[in-house]
Design a protein around this nucleic acid. Structure first.
Lengths: 154, 154
DNA sequence: TTAATATATGTAGCTAACTACGTATACTTG
DNA sequence: CAAGTATACGTAGTTAGCTACATATATTAA
């Protein structure tokens, strides 16, 4: 058995998490140096609302692929920043509809060039012989087909 | 600008984190169904102590690539489980030396076949056209050479 | 039309890493 | 050898997701 492989692949979970943290931290700094007060974790919410301007909490959660409690906590932060607001759905009183504020829409416009820069930088960074975005997608597809758990059951 | 790409790559941090969580959760279950009371996050510590049986806290932290506070909290848990123990370094009174207990050594032996199974399963899972372990290594190398931050500065 | 079930939202508390900071011991240098 | 610096360890508090549970409204079925 190959020691390096063993310790490498069994530590994959930690490796993924730490790479995630590093990119997020840099992401935050990049917004900051561009004079934008924005956190990378808010991106999926704001970006989704750009294309689907009115969504309920759960619809939004589904759209960004988070659980609803995680989404609620993001929404709380974004509401505090006055980047989004919400209103009751008249048809269904259980629902809270989420919308960008004017401030949110304006910020979104300001962020466009920064996003463009980040996309270029990230594309350059991940344009290696094994593309990490594709690799993630492939592993996710593999997991969808058969979980790690099931694969280890023999 | 490609919308799918943009939302994809700018959300890379979250994707990495969630894949990490999923693998860790399954990892825990796999130990469990094999009758082993062990958490995936403990792996680097136990595995390292297998090859380097006596290490100080900071040496161990460096070895596994964690910060020392993170390492200390893992060590606390492992001490509670009686899988490791510690003793003062006589040469340097600041240091606390970490060792596997007999229970720890025994568990390590019991885990070998499970690790083997997991390595096989993970290798199968990640053996896609873009290999995720290699991709992580390549991105880490790229980052080492020039950070995401620096790449976005133009 | 009430009872049972389903859906939408919210709250509380967990996890696994981190940074910032504090204290104790060791080392170095004037 | 005393003062300043470096190293080792520890604690406190943060983060960004999560699960489990609670409550309110809506829908369905007897």
């Amino acid at each position: 058995m190959n020691v390096i492989n063993e310790s490498g692949i069994l530590g994959i979970s930690t490796r993924l998490q730490r790479l995630s943290e590093q990119l997020r931290k840099d992401g935050f700094q990049i917004y900051k140096t561009n004079g934008i007060d924005f956190e990378p974790k808010w991106f999926p919410v704001i970006y989704t609302l750009h294309f689907k301007p009115v969504l309920s909490v759960v619809e939004l959660a589904t759209e960004i692929g988070y659980t609803h409690p995680s989404t609620i906590s993001l929404l709380k932060e974004l509401e505090k920043e006055k980047l989004i607001r919400s209103k009751k759905d008249k048809q269904d009183e259980r629902k809270r509809l989420i919308l960008l504020t004017e401030k949110g829409k304006k910020l979104l416009q300001q962020m466009q060039p920064v996003w463009q820069t980040m996309v270029v930088a990230l594309t350059e960074l991940t344009n290696t012989s094994n593309n990490i975005m594709k690799a993630i997608e492939e592993v996710e597809a593999q997991l969808n087909h058969k979980s790690f758990m099931d694969r280890a059951k023999k």
